[in-house]
């Protein structure tokens, strides 16, 4: 494993900055949003949150940016959930049966159905694929940790993960 000081990563960042902006413009479909995101990558690099040891430094920069994108997606889901929770408590406080009861009930049922669909889709995976998927996704083990735990190769782990994701994206509405 190669040791990369933080300053080397920052150097690399400036070297690759234009390529990163090009990549995230494609991903975000907006040059302005990409500029912001690539700036955020720098903020992370320059702060103490990121440290020395990185195996593939270029890949690390791209992944850092991609994770920031996913974090933003998570944040959007959370604030949507908070809004829903607030509406629900607010409604309870009002106590009036006529206040927006229907949409919330419908929403809650849709969420339950969605959860059931996801469970069914995961449960339909072969036992080994399901084991790999759960260990990586829900137990947070890396590909090589899953491989070591199950005594299979890392490429086998990747094949199981691909099969799982493909199945989920093809079967879930």
């Amino acid at each position: 494993m190669e040791r990369q000081g933080r300053s080397t990563l920052v150097d690399l960042y400036f070297e690759r900055r234009a390529e990163l902006v090009r990549f995230f413009t494609l991903r975000l479909r907006s040059a302005a949003a990409a500029e912001d995101l690539v700036q955020d990558i720098y903020v992370r690099l320059a702060s103490a949150e990121v440290d020395a040891e990185v195996r593939n430094p270029v890949s690390y920069l791209y992944r850092l940016g991609s994770n920031l994108m996913l974090d933003r997606l998570r944040g959007e889901r959370r604030s949507a959930a908070r809004d829903a929770a607030w509406r629900q408590t607010h409604r309870t406080e009002l106590g009036g049966a006529e206040v927006a009861e229907e949409p919330d009930a419908v929403q809650a049922m849709a969420a339950r159905q969605r959860l059931a669909a996801v469970v069914t889709a995961i449960a339909a995976l072969s036992p080994q694929t399901q084991r790999v998927f759960r260990m990586h996704k829900f137990e947070g083990l890396s590909h090589s940790e899953v491989a070591a735990a199950l005594g299979i190769s890392r490429s086998a782990v990747e094949k199981h993960m691909i099969a799982a994701l493909r199945h989920l994206s093809e079967t879930l509405p």
């Binding site: 195996r55 593939n56 270029v58 890949s59 791209y62 992944r63 990747e158």
Partner: peptide, 8 residues
Amino acid sequence: LQGETATG
């Protein structure tokens, strides 16, 4: 791209 061995 999630794997530990992804490269630039």
